[in-house]
Amino acid sequence: MSILINEDTTFIVQGITGREAVNLTRECLDYGAGAKVVGGVTPGRLGREVHGVPVFDTVKQAVDHHGGPIDGSVVTVPPAFTKDAVFEAIENGIKLIVIVTERIPRRDVAQMVELASLRGARIIGPNCLGIIVPDVIKMGGIGGPAKDAAKAYTSGPIGVISRSGGMTTEMSSTLTAAGLGQSTAVSIGGDAIIGSSYAELMPLFEADEQTEGIVIYTEPGGRMEAELAKWVKENNSRLPIVAFMAGRFMDEMPGMSFGHAGTIVEGKEDTAAEKIARLAEAGITVAEEISQIPEIMKSKLGAPANA
């Protein structure tokens, strides 16, 4: 199985007529079994089509046209309009929202995440590439065109969670080359506030029978790794975890931001060194190089329990 999405998942693309959204729609339609993209929304463009997908002015029109609840939405609208688009999706009953947009002010993100939690919806992102279930479906730009995504991702036992969209593919490709396929790979976004953190996705992977181990990509900044370490310890997780930490050089440069909006060392707990120590305390191995990840994972999978 997989987490979050499967071959039956229906979704819309908000902002579907934008250049990147047109490409993303094509990619999702082409990949695996072909995603069920049941509509697109761009205000004022009712009646158009994007690669055969009907375009609507409102999410409500898309839901009415579909004739029942729609599972998800990929949001690609500009930062100033993202909050409204996400509110619109949530208030029309959509439960899984992938926010691709970068540079959304934090206040807006906090409001979106709060509304999602009140309504029982889940947000992935912002500033992410989405979710992929290898050979089955992808929701978002993750992995790129279908033929490129097929090169990097194969089906298998590893769940991948990454703060960087590109590194989700790099790590999955490395796993694939070593014969370790992926159950689901999730690009969770690089902003300071995101809808779903490592610790929030772990229970889903924990409950997924296909998943036997987790690989994460992480960076300095924020408290997500500490939360993951805590979750693993408190829940006695069955899943071995291997992590890769980029941006170690940033420990010497507090207050400077690199890579992603959320990647900045502001206090002691933010540093790569501190995070590596916390992850290690929870039994999570931090690989020195990406190419070592498969070997470490294989040895952990061979071991009887997550010691």
Partner: peptide, 11 residues
Amino acid sequence: GAGGGSLTLFD
């Protein structure tokens, strides 16, 4: 590049 790639490569 890109965001995460640059951090990884610089290290």
